[in-house]
Structure formats: C-alpha cells, structure tokens
Design a protein around this nucleic acid. Sequence first.
DNA 1: GCACCAATCTGAACGCCGTCAAGATGGTCT
DNA 2: AGACCATCTTGACGGCGTTCAGATTGGTGC
Lengths: 209, 209
Amino acid sequence: MSTATAESRPYHHGDLSRALIDAARKILETEGPAALSLRAVAREAGVSPAAPYHHFKDKAELLEAVAHEGWHELDAALSKARGETDNARDQMTNLGVAYVCFARDNPALYRVMYDRSRDKDALPDQLKDDGAYCQVRDTIAENSGGRATEIDLELATIAAWCAGHGLAEMISFKQFAPLKDLLGGEEAFLRAVFEHLGMFAKVIDRDPA
Amino acid sequence: MSTATAESRPYHHGDLSRALIDAARKILETEGPAALSLRAVAREAGVSPAAPYHHFKDKAELLEAVAHEGWHELDAALSKARGETDNARDQMTNLGVAYVCFARDNPALYRVMYDRSRDKDALPDQLKDDGAYCQVRDTIAENSGGRATEIDLELATIAAWCAGHGLAEMISFKQFAPLKDLLGGEEAFLRAVFEHLGMFAKVIDRDPA
DNA sequence: GCACCAATCTGAACGCCGTCAAGATGGTCT
DNA sequence: AGACCATCTTGACGGCGTTCAGATTGGTGC
C-alpha cells in the first residue's frame, strides 16, 4: 500500500514534517504555548514520541519552523495593510495597526516567534533581507521624502518596531479595557496610542527642535 | 537547638520562603530562566523537592513572588533616574534609558516579570497604584504643563511604556550591534531610538498638525 | 523478481520535571 | 509531660525531552 491518497507521499507517513508543524500550530491555537509539548505534537500527528526526531533535531528546531511560518504570515499581513492606501502617512498607521492585530489574533504564534528569536539573540534573517522590517523602513523612507540619512531611517524603523512590539504585548492586559471602551473599541485605542507616540516625528517633520 | 543564629528563626529551616526566593533569583542570574525548576530551587536552598509547597501553592506562586520583587526594584531604579535632573524633558529620557538598562542588566528577572503578567493577563496592581507606571505618567504630566487631558496622559503613558518595553526586548538582538558601535555605544543607541520615537510629542509639543 | 540500503518509524528506557499523600521532626503552648 | 501544629522528608505518580536498538518500509540496482 504505497500511496493511500492521490498525493505522492515520499515515505511511510507522507510529509510528516508538514504534519508536525500543522499539529504544533493546532495545539498552539487551541491550548496555548504551555500545552505545546513534543509528545503532544506527535500524538496529534498520530506518530510515536520519537518520530519527530527524524525530521527535526530537537523541539527547538520544530518551533523554529513554526516561527518561520509566523514571520512569513506577518510579512503578508503587513504587505496587505500597506497596499490599502496610497497616503504614505496612513500606510504607517495601517502598518502599525496590522502588526498589533496580527499579534492579537495569533498570540501563541507571536509568542513562539519572539521566544525563538530571544533564544538565538537575533531576529530572523528574512526580516532584514526582504521581510516585514523592510516594509516598515521603506514606508518611513517614503514619508521622509529623501531627507533622512540612512542612520535616521534605521533608527526610526527600530523605534517603530519597538513601539509595535511593545503595544502588541500590552494590548492583551485587561487594565486597558476601560480605556478601550471609552475610545470606542480596540482599534481606536491602538490608533490613539500610535498617535501619542508622535511616531517617526523626527524623520517626517524634521524641524530641528 | 532552637536558634542556630542570632536571628529568630520561626521554624526548622528559618525563613525558607525568603531562602527560596533568593535561590530562585540566583539560579535566574547564573543559569537563566530555562534552568529555573522548582526542584533546582529546592536543591539550591538545601531542602527536599516538596518543601517549597509549604510556602507557595505551586511554582507559579514562587515566580510571582520573584516577579513582585522585580517590579519593586524597577520602581526604585526609575525613581533614582528621575531624581537625577530637574529638567522635565531630560527626566523623560532618563526614565526611558533607566527602564531599558534595568531590563538589559536583569534579563532573566525581567522575563519572569512579564511572563507572570501575561499568565494573569494583567500588569501588577502596584504598577497602577504608586509604582513605576505612575512615575512615567507624572513625568509626562509635568511636561505637558497641565494642557493634556486625563485620557491624553494615560495614552501617552501607555505609549511610553510600550516603547520602553519594546526597546528593552529588542536591545539584546545582535543585529543592532553595528549600529550601536556606529553611534558610540549602547546608551547612545538607546537615546537615539528614543529621540526617533518623537516620544510624547503630542502631549509635550501640542501643536495640532 | 529480488536483494539490499537508507530513510523512516516504534518501543522501551533514562533522567528530569511538577505535584501530592503519608509520615517523621521539632517548636509551642498548656 | 503531653497535645498540637507548622514544617520538612520520603516515596510515588504521570508527563516531559531525548536516545537507542531494532522493526518496517520505499526506492535502487541487479
């Protein structure tokens, strides 16, 4: 019984790597990061606890693969948000809101993404090369009208990333619920906080004060 | 042999709660969060693995106590930084730098502090009542010269906290090492990023644009 | 068709973990 | 002295990440 389905299955199970990643993500979504054990992933995928070790060096490497998918999806979300307007300044706000919403809607995945980065002391390379980070930098560059130096651009991008990440982590804390209601919902709250950051003011407004 | 030392020891070991917290912090500092098991803490304190359960409901409650100390120490660090200048605007920058430096110098403790908050979906109460958060808000209020509404103040404080937290998490990533060198060190890097946030611009500069 | 190899998976085991129940220990109070 | 109770130890349970020997399977060369 070589292939149980029409798809070409390279070996015994089929694409177990893929199945393991999917199983991990399902557990993350339904039970949260605390429940994400390698044994649970194997169970979910219907294989023995030792099976994953033929596809991933250890648990960390599986999580790495999950995180990698997460960064790609964040990238896609930012691309979409950026494309929804031509006004460069609105693009910036949209990027920020989209970033935070991604983190809010995929909290466990977002956690895994940064936990893996922390363990490596480095954000993923794809971020620097052509990923989400570059979209933020490019948008800032367009806002600056060519007046900003390379260093200014880099610093403003880091600043924006910090603000987005910080807000993404704060947004879930229930302290802010009253403020959200008062402002008319979560997105309004997000936009208000972003405004109060006076984000990128130095690059965009560029008056030396 | 009731009291082995001059101090009054309530029971067998002495103040085991205290010893456990100290042991946990020592392990955090020397081996990092991953090595912080309850058994390791008990081992470090010289008691059996079950002993901690007479002082803390479970592992989470011990970590809660550790986190609580962390917030107090962060509070003290911010107080000190704020007191080092009278210029309100400098106070703001000093607060930001002090916050990030605390996180950089106590990375494992900082991690535990926020991990516990996430599990509870809430920042510690002490933050709202008279702690670090209020110091930031008060400083912003002084900067605004009474022109800011309550909501503006709250939003600006959240924005500042997000930026600080975000930067605290980013600072360790090795990608930014070249930029740090280029700017003449880590603190210069910190200050540059804070500047690029145009932080609190809306509250402080208050020109409607 | 068949033998063989390498890739893949299983089963059992190791040491670690968090937690709990039962019992030993030693202050404290009367 | 004796009772009491907080404290600590011992031993156990199930779950974890990981390893390893061996079984199973798919593809390759004859």
